[in-house]
Amino acid sequence: MKHYIGIAGTNAKHSTNRQLIQYMSHHYADSATITLADIAGWPLFYKTPDHTVPAAATTLAEQIQAADGVIIATPEYDHAVPAVLSSALAWLSYYIHPFAGKPVMILGASYGALGTSRAQAQLRQILTSPELDARILPSGEFLLGHSLKAFTDQGELTDAKAVAHLDELMANFAIFADINAQLTNSLRAIHKGAQA
C-alpha cells in the first residue's frame, strides 16, 4: 500500500483539479492512500530574511517527506501553472527540500480541450530545478480536457478510456516509486563508497 500526497494547484473554491485528486483518492483506495493537501491561504512567496517558511509549508513538507510520492494536479492560467502553485513550490524549496529525490506524478484538468498541456510542461521544468530536485514520472501524461463535463455528480470520471489510462499511470507510478527508492539507495551507497 503506497501513501501519496495529492496537491491540487489551486486556491479556487471550485476546482476540477481538486475533484480529480478526490476521485483518485477514492478510486485507488485499495492500492494507495492519497491525502489531499490544501495550499490555499498560503502567503505569496518571498525570500524571508531569516529563511523561515509558513507553518503550513513546514507541515506539508513533513507529510511529503514521509510519503512515497506526490501527485500534483495543476490548472493552467495563461499557458502556465497558477502562481499559487509556483508560490507553494517556492516555499517548499526554501531552505527545506521535501521534494529532493521524491517521486512526483504530474496531471492536470482544464475547462478547454488541451487539458493543461503547457502548465504541465512548465511544472516539469520547475520540479527539475536544483532546489526541488524531484523525480518526475518520466513518460505518460494525463491531460483532462473539458473538465467541467468530465465527472458525474458522484465524482466519477465518465470517460472509460481516461480511467483506463489513469489506472495504468498509477500502476506505473507505484513501480517508479519502488525503482526510485532502489536508485536513491544505490546512489547513497556510491556516495558512501566515494567518501570512504
Binding site: 502556465a80 497558477p82 502562481a83 499559487v84 509556483s86 508560490s87 521544468q125 527539475t128 530545478s129 526541488l132
Partner: peptide, 14 residues
C-alpha cells in the same frame, strides 16, 4: 526562481 519566473510576478499577471 526554480527555473521559472518568481511567483509574485506570475501572480500579478493572473
Amino acid at each position: 526562481h526554480n527555473h521559472t519566473l518568481a511567483p509574485a510576478m506570475k501572480n500579478v499577471i493572473e
